[in-house]
Design a protein around this nucleic acid. Sequence first.
DNA 1: GTATCTTTCAT
DNA 2: TGAAAGATA
Length: 674
Amino acid sequence: MSGGGCSIVWFRRDLRVEDNPALAAAVRAGAVIAIFIWSPEEEGAYYPGRVSRWWLKQSLAHLDASLRNLGTSLVTKRSTDSVSSLIEVVKSTGATHLFFNQLYDPLSLVRDHRAKELLTAQGIVVRSFNADLLYEPWEINDTQGRPFTTFSDFWNRCLSMPYDPASPLLPPKRITSGDASRCPSEALVFEDESEKGSNALLARAWSPGWSSADKALTTFINGPLIEYSVNRKKADSATTSFLSPHLHFGEVSVRKVFHLVRIKQVLWANEGNIAGEESVNVFLKSIGLREYSRYMSFNHPYSLERPLLAHLKFFPWVVNEGYFKVWRQGRTGYPLVDAGMRELWATGWLHDRIRVVVSSFFVKVLQLPWRWGMKYFWDTLLDADLESDALGWQYISGTLPDGREFDRMDNPQIEGYKFDPNGEYVRRWLPELARLPTEWVHHPWDAPESVLQAAGVELGSNYPLPIVEIDAAKARLQVALSEMWQQEATSRAAVENGTEEGLGDSSESAPFAFPQDIQMEVELEQPSRNNPAITVRRYEDQMVPSITTSLQRDEEESSMDIRRSTSDGRPEVPTSINVGPELQREAPNQGGFLTIRNNNSLLQLNILELQNAEDSTAESSSSGRMERDGGIVPVWSPSASNYSDQFVGGQSGLGSSSSYLQRHPQSHQLINWT
DNA sequence: GTATCTTTCAT
DNA sequence: TGAAAGATA
């Protein structure tokens, strides 16, 4: 048969067959060719880290197997420009339709828009769907039709929407395969030789792919969920859902999670189980934060790079790569922080509480620029997710309207006794402190010499003294803050006098370039002469997360000790840190182009056009709710407003540049195909 | 019962 | 840090 008339399903972060609206629509339309395009260079600085790539590789294999069971297979392409590859695929297969599920990070918004524009121009029917969210970002607005700027208002609105999130779709029973014979798969390489050893261990703890995701969900709902609100305090527990990497790659639908969890909640409510009911609320809140991260990214695309509160751009961050390195290596001298960083480095996983601890320490005590920390998380976390991580770092950094106060500084010692009261977590990840009594385990610097000696701890030798004293850090933070306000006042005065037009956009487009070498520099950490065994242990290779049985872990530890002799076992963080994806904007009055620069593509969208489109939508939206029938959903609600001036984006006009999609609302059609 | 101290927990 | 919930007088 000829491939003519078939549909392409473009898989990205929706690696599942169940509740996949794009796949379902394609199956409905007839013959299907499923493709995945691996084009990591497009992500610029956010080239996926080693553990993310490992996950993706497994997940794709799993998806391919599932598609084969249903009657087709996954065509894979290696590319440096996904849209060009898409066009080639369409041409070589003679497809007439393209279906995909929407993404909300700035790069994807632009890329998907371009795909729609180019393919539509060639007569291809292009449809995209919401598979990633409970509600589309533009569905959730305040009473005046403007996007929310605080999480709790946003989430309350989501929970009180007049209509429920769409019900999950069943997987297709069978897929008629389109003819992909003239569109052969290309081999994708997700790991290099040096990464294989480290990756092999991941498989013991994690199992990527949609069916494992489903299993994890069921296990969680029938197990830890009911106690979720009680257990969330413990840093070292297996009480989290472990769904985040699955959710990142779309192996399980967030709507399915939502519905199943809500069913449990109703059940527990009827039984009068208050704790269970509350647990569901707490868990759903974390789903809501994921939701909100997309919402923020959509409404403020620059929030991945810049603080949302304008004055924070004047904060004098401490640009100290030495601090940065010490933090990454888990050698800050604060046991809870160090244990967390060692766990992250070794396993690619960190309990949410500990993420808060280490990132708060990073921003408040070390005063390093939060984007560095965010980048390191991106490189090392198994569930690295740009939107979620940006939201998290901005929250911690106090750069959100509803984030923590900027001058609040947490004390790792106090948090240590709160989240790890018996010191078990610290002892597991910091063997050099393993023999220290609980009384001192979170503040060894206060311990009597005799206690340290008995525990084999030599401060400054096999475990460091605190890199910065908390009191000193507090004082430094105050100084930095007054400097910030002074700068801010100066700048505002300059703007009011008209001496500084446009706020010097060019200089702030990349607030803090990433350090050239963001890798773990293990070679600088020679095994200590005093205690070689412990030092070697500290830098051994990737360990599995704590969810495995202790038996398994023992095996792994011994096997890793052997491997240690041949490779340095550091996480493989890409060495080439390119500039970008960097969103650069020239002032609208100078020609008005939103320029998105990337390694291999340069996209330009005319901002003047966007602004016109904005005006018209502002008018139409004032007339009431946005249309849902007719299949057209407006894609962006302008945040033209009184609050926007507190945002960097609003102040310099960047907020409105997020409307690049709005110019073509029809390009974001949502098919009403029930 | 209220008034005031203490603890908890932040998106 | 400070608002809300819990504990104690």
